[in-house]
């Protein structure tokens, strides 16, 4: 009765890549998005039309290591792996703890969260403010893209069908004097889809802002970030003047365009996004982390 499904599970990344080069496949890492996406009604198996390639077991894609100033995270590291890894920065760990519940965290991967490109992906706001770069591998070699270029829309990414996401690089993570924070706003404390996500990043020298970045999740098709707005604050001193804060808020007010849905209202999402931004900007000091 059940239709035939073709699935591959190779021992090596190379074999995987050469198969992907031959045919268009559905990649499954943890499968926690794929299985939901292709879910059928009760009693009927999911309908995945393309052949499946499993990559969750590939060790090469599960490494976490430092290279110079950069932190490299294997795309197939599960959330549980990352929570147990001493190299992973605390703000990212805190973000991961807000995702799903332990069972899903044992399966779900960082690479899956990125490639799934949901507006409510909870690692994405932080990855944006970390200026994360993505290592894409195919039979023709390696390509590195910024996360903000890779994610193009709801479930739309700049991945060629023969590529896999191999690693995520956090370049600025270890810079001195940096502080980052993520706040998830969901309807409950576990197994919730974000209504608003906010990540803030700041690097100061004494009281002077050297670098500052913000990203908002679940308030548009992709993460909302504006380098232009951020630039206006560089060189200013902490605590920021009320007028500066107001200017940034009104600039974001114009570009945050959330929607009403079954989980919340546009008005709530916008108000809360701006509240969290105001709170971040109004701090008198930022503890480095």
């Amino acid at each position: 009765m059940a239709e035939k499904i073709i699935a591959y599970r190779f021992d090596q990344v190379d074999q995987t890549l050469s198969q992907l080069n031959k045919e268009d496949c559905t990649i499954i890492a943890g499968g926690t998005d794929v299985m939901v996406l292709y879910k059928s009604r009760r009693g009927v198996p999911p309908k995945i039309t393309k052949p499946i390639v499993f990559i969750d077991h590939l060790n090469e894609l599960k490494q976490v290591y430092k290279k110079g100033k950069d932190l490299h995270i294997g795309a197939c590291c599960t959330y549980s792996d990352l929570l147990n890894d001493p190299l992973i920065p605390t703000p990212l760990k805190n973000a991961i703890k807000t995702i799903a519940a332990p069972a899903i965290r044992n399966r779900g991967t960082l690479g899956g969260n990125i490639c799934n490109a949901s507006p409510a992906g909870d690692t994405l706001p932080l990855l944006y403010v970390y200026n994360a770069k993505l290592v894409l591998r195919s039979v023709s070699g390696v390509r590195i893209v910024a996360i903000s270029d890779f994610i193009q829309g709801v479930r739309r990414v700049d991945r060629k069908s023969n590529e896999i996401l191999a690693e995520i690089i956090l370049p600025s993570e270890l810079e001195e004097g940096a502080y980052a924070v993520f706040e998830k706003v969901g309807n409950r404390n576990a197994d919730a889809i974000a209504k608003v996500g906010f990540a803030g990043y700041i690097r100061t020298n004494g009281e002077v802002i050297k670098d500052i970045r913000f990203a908002f999740g679940a308030v548009g098709p992709t993460m909302v970030r504006s380098v232009d707005i951020e630039k206006k604050l560089i060189g200013k001193t902490i605590p920021l003047a009320g007028a500066d804060i107001a200017q940034v808020l009104s600039a974001f007010d114009k570009i945050i365009k959330p929607i009403d849905d079954q989980r919340s209202t546009a008005r709530y999402r916008k108000t809360v996004a701006l509240n969290l931004l105001r709170y971040f900007l109004s701090r008198k000091q930022y503890q480095h982390n």
Partner: peptide
């Protein structure tokens, strides 16, 4: 259940 949101 996620959208309705009973307590965990």
């Amino acid at each position: 259940i996620t959208d309705y949101g009973p307590p965990t």
